[in-house]
Design a binder for these strands. Structure first.
Length: 484
RNA sequence: GUCCCUAUCGUCUAGAGGCCUAGGACACCGGGUUUUCAUCCCGGCAACCGGGGUUCGAAUCCCCGUGGGGAUGCCA
């Protein structure tokens, strides 16, 4: 039997990494079994619907490489794949359930809650709905236009047991299951109903979803049984957590940082790195390997590697992994991808971008770090003469004050002005004075950079800055050192 | 409140009764290489939540606590 999995997001405007990871595992489970990956849009909550959000879902899956085999744009014979377009279907099945005695109508009263409030009473149990078990009377009320819902009728005796591929056998007392609403008063199904209908109709064999659905799974199974349908294989996934500022953890959300795929991308994380990282959040290949392409994930994926406990999202490790991907990028790709982040357009450095990129390529983890790394090239920072101190190479401001004027004269007219020539001249200068090269380059580097940490050494920086600006900055340093 | 799930370094995890003196990675801290920084290399710090069982033997199995998470919506 062909394995069929689905990813069923709501179009709410952005793709949370938790959702993306669910999509990834559903994709991996399907593909590692030569199965079919279905995309279904769950837009039954018109209040939460966001214009254009479906496009965000398409774009995200495409960018991430999670290509679906069936979906709104790829009919595989189980369409439509957008729930709002399936609306009549749900009522049909809900009414079938009523006939079978597994569901019943409930009508809005609109008064009980209001009355209670007026009397200053709290009536938490009252949801403003009155059940009508008599079918004839129910039909009359419907004909009279009274708003109503259809809810599941659950026998509260006994218990329900089911097996999950990750969590194993789970038993829940039926008395804690409530008569959940299946069809809303606007005629749309709830998730609790639609997922059962659609997963069955779309021949989904393996339901991959977050562990938050574990406690309500018995209700879905009751529905499957009422219809006489096969229950799919369940694969519930541990949740992804974020760390709060007070050290506690909670479901990963915006306050923990960027949690949407689009946000992460705009911060300079690479799609393949994000996928690789989240794959390892809750799943392990059971060996020490950590870097996997999507294809390699497909080849290595197994449900047995899924974890049960929630995992904390760690931006530091994501950054490290992203750095691995950035460094592995062909240089031309890095130049192209990093350019928008550098923000050099319209500056004198724009034409030096490739030269700068050469320095940045192996020193960047997240592309958004770039402006901060190179800002000193655009504008000489304010700095203290203390920077000319360096213990390791024994540099001091006094030494810099004598060296800098000498070096300035040596390089003033060298040609061509590039790292190689400058290296030659300054190396010779160091050799003459029996000085180590790292001492000879310390002062010039500080002078042209104005900061202690720089991407690249003195020669590269001077080449990028050009002759005029380099000489000017060294001049500034000499004056600063004179003032002390 | 009730119900469900869960528990190995700070974080992600390996470990399916003896291979564990508990392995890897990130982070952190040293050292080396390097014209700085980074890369790279080498080293270090750091964990089986607690208590009872079962067993010749338990991180691994069972029970009870405790901690953590989730569910309890006309959200999904």
């Amino acid at each position: 039997m062909t394995v069929r999995t689905r990813f069923a997001p709501s179009p709410t405007g952005f793709m949370h990494v938790g959702n993306l990871r669910t999509a990834l595992y559903a994709y991996l489970l399907a593909k590692s079994n030569n199965g079919v990956f279905v995309l279904r849009i769950e837009d039954t909550d018109q209040a939460r619907y966001v214009e254009g959000a479906t496009q965000v879902i398409f774009n995200t899956l495409k960018t991430a490489g999670l290509i679906h085999d069936e979906g709104p744009d790829k009919d595989g014979g189980c369409g439509p794949y957008i729930q709002s377009q399936r609306k009549p279907l749900y009522r049909k099945y809900a009414e079938l359930l009523v006939e079978k005695g597994a569901a019943y109508y409930s009508f809005e009263t609109g008064t009980a809650a209001a009355t209670a409030a007026a009397n200053g009473e709290t009536q938490e149990e009252d949801d403003g709905l009155e059940p009508e078990f008599d079918l004839e009377r129910a039909k009359a009320k419907i004909a009279a236009g009274i708003p109503h819902v259809i809810r599941q009728r659950i026998d509260k005796s006994g218990s329900s047991t089911f097996t999950d591929s990750v969590f194993g056998e789970i038993t829940i007392e039926n008395k804690v299951l409530d008569d959940q609403i299946l069809l809303k008063s606007d005629g749309m199904p709830t998730y609790n109903f639609a997922n059962v209908i659609d997963d069955h109709l779309m021949n989904i064999t393996h339901v991959v979803r977050g562990a938050e659905y574990l406690p309500s799974t018995p209700k879905y199974n009751l529905l499957y049984r009422a219809f006489g349908w096969d229950i799919p294989v369940y694969v519930h996934l541990p949740l992804i957590m974020g760390r709060n500022s007070d050290g506690s953890v909670a479901k990963l959300s915006k306050r923990h940082g960027s949690v949407s795929f689009e946000n992460l991308i705009s911060e300079g994380y690479l799609p393949a790195a994000i996928i690789n990282y989240i794959a390892l959040l809750g799943w392990s290949p059971k060996n020490d390997r950590e870097i996997f392409s999507l294809e390699e994930l497909v080849a290595n994926f197994s449900v047995s590697g899924l974890n049960k406990a929630p995992a904390v999202f760690d931006y530091a490790k994501l950054a490290w992994m992203n750095g691995e991907y950035v460094k592995a990028l062909p240089f031309d790709d890095f130049v192209r991808l990093a350019e928008p982040f550098a923000c050099l357009e319209g500056t004198p450095l724009a034409e030096k971008w490739e030269l700068i990129a050469k320095l940045l390529h192996q020193r960047t983890e997240v592309l958004s770090e770039i402006p901060g790394k190179i800002h000193f090239l655009l504008e000489l920072p304010e700095y203290e003469n203390e920077l000319f101190f360096n213990k390791k190479c024994k540099s001091t401001p006094e030494l810099a004050a004598t060296m800098l004027p000498e070096i300035l004269e040596l390089i003033r007219n060298v040609a061509p002005w590039n790292a190689e020539t400058l290296n030659g001249v300054i190396s010779a200068y160091a050799a003459e004075r029996n000085m180590k090269l790292n001492l000879a380059t310390w002062a010039p580097r500080i002078a042209v950079a104005g900061q202690s940490v720089t991407p690249g050494g003195a020669f590269e920086l001077m080449e990028i800055l050009g002759r005029d600006e380099s000489l000017r900055r060294i001049g500034v340093a000499i004056e600063k050192l004179k003032r002390g």
